[in-house]
Amino acid sequence: MNVKFFTRANCGLCVEGLHTLKLVQEDLGFHVDIIDIEENEAVHEKYMLMIPVVEKDGQVIQYGNLDYATLMEHLSYE
């Protein structure tokens, strides 16, 4: 499973979102690629108003206020 977490510096919502994603990761045991949207102009354009964003296999699972239940539901299926 390929899980990506899109974030940027000085984003309080991103810090909270990553914490929530890490809780799900502890339960399910997958790898998370953390991507700073400021490092890629195309990614920045795509997600600048949505961060934090969690993608699984190229599909957006959740963005903005991340919650454990939604992430668990979508990431528990391989």
Results as ranks from 00 to 15, higher is better:
residue 19 H to L: 15
residue 20 T to Y: 03
residue 20 T to A: 06
residue 20 T to H: 05
residue 20 T to W: 00
residue 20 T to V: 11
residue 21 L to E: 03
residue 21 L to Q: 01
residue 21 L to F: 03
residue 21 L to W: 03
residue 22 K to A: 15
residue 22 K to I: 11
residue 22 K to D: 14
residue 22 K to C: 07
residue 22 K to F: 08
residue 22 K to G: 11
residue 23 L to K: 12
residue 23 L to E: 12
residue 24 V to G: 01
residue 24 V to Y: 01
residue 25 Q to F: 09
residue 25 Q to H: 06
residue 25 Q to S: 14
residue 25 Q to M: 12
residue 25 Q to I: 11
residue 26 E to V: 13
residue 27 D to N: 07
residue 27 D to A: 09
residue 28 L to T: 07
residue 28 L to V: 07
residue 29 G to M: 11
residue 29 G to N: 12
residue 30 F to L: 09
residue 30 F to G: 09
residue 31 H to R: 13
residue 31 H to Q: 15
residue 31 H to F: 15
residue 32 V to I: 13
residue 32 V to M: 06
residue 32 V to R: 02
residue 32 V to W: 03
residue 33 D to Q: 14
residue 34 I to F: 08
residue 34 I to W: 06
residue 35 I to D: 03
residue 35 I to Y: 02
residue 35 I to E: 02
residue 36 D to V: 02
residue 36 D to N: 12
residue 37 I to H: 01
residue 37 I to M: 02
residue 37 I to N: 00
residue 37 I to A: 04
residue 38 E to A: 12
residue 38 E to T: 11
residue 39 E to V: 05
residue 39 E to M: 11
residue 39 E to Q: 12
residue 39 E to A: 09
residue 40 N to P: 04
residue 40 N to Y: 04
residue 40 N to T: 06
residue 41 E to L: 12
residue 41 E to G: 09
residue 42 A to H: 09
residue 42 A to M: 07
residue 42 A to W: 05
residue 43 V to K: 02
residue 43 V to F: 05
residue 43 V to T: 09
residue 43 V to Y: 04
residue 44 H to R: 13
residue 44 H to Q: 09
residue 44 H to G: 05
residue 45 E to T: 06
residue 45 E to V: 03
residue 45 E to G: 01
residue 45 E to W: 08
residue 45 E to R: 10
residue 46 K to M: 07
residue 47 Y to K: 00
residue 47 Y to L: 00
residue 47 Y to E: 03
residue 47 Y to Q: 03
residue 47 Y to N: 00
residue 48 M to R: 14
residue 48 M to I: 14
residue 49 L to N: 11
residue 51 I to G: 01
residue 51 I to D: 04
residue 52 P to Y: 01
residue 53 V to E: 01
residue 53 V to L: 05
residue 54 V to L: 07
residue 55 E to F: 03
residue 55 E to C: 11
residue 55 E to G: 04
residue 55 E to H: 04
residue 56 K to P: 06
residue 57 D to Q: 14
residue 57 D to R: 14
residue 58 G to Y: 12
residue 58 G to H: 13
residue 59 Q to R: 15
residue 59 Q to Y: 15
residue 59 Q to W: 10
residue 59 Q to G: 07
residue 60 V to F: 08
residue 60 V to L: 08
residue 61 I to C: 07
residue 61 I to K: 05
residue 61 I to V: 14
residue 62 Q to A: 12
residue 62 Q to N: 10
residue 62 Q to M: 12
residue 62 Q to R: 11
residue 62 Q to Y: 05
residue 63 Y to G: 02
residue 63 Y to L: 04
residue 64 G to R: 06
residue 64 G to N: 04
residue 65 N to Y: 07
residue 65 N to G: 06
residue 65 N to W: 08
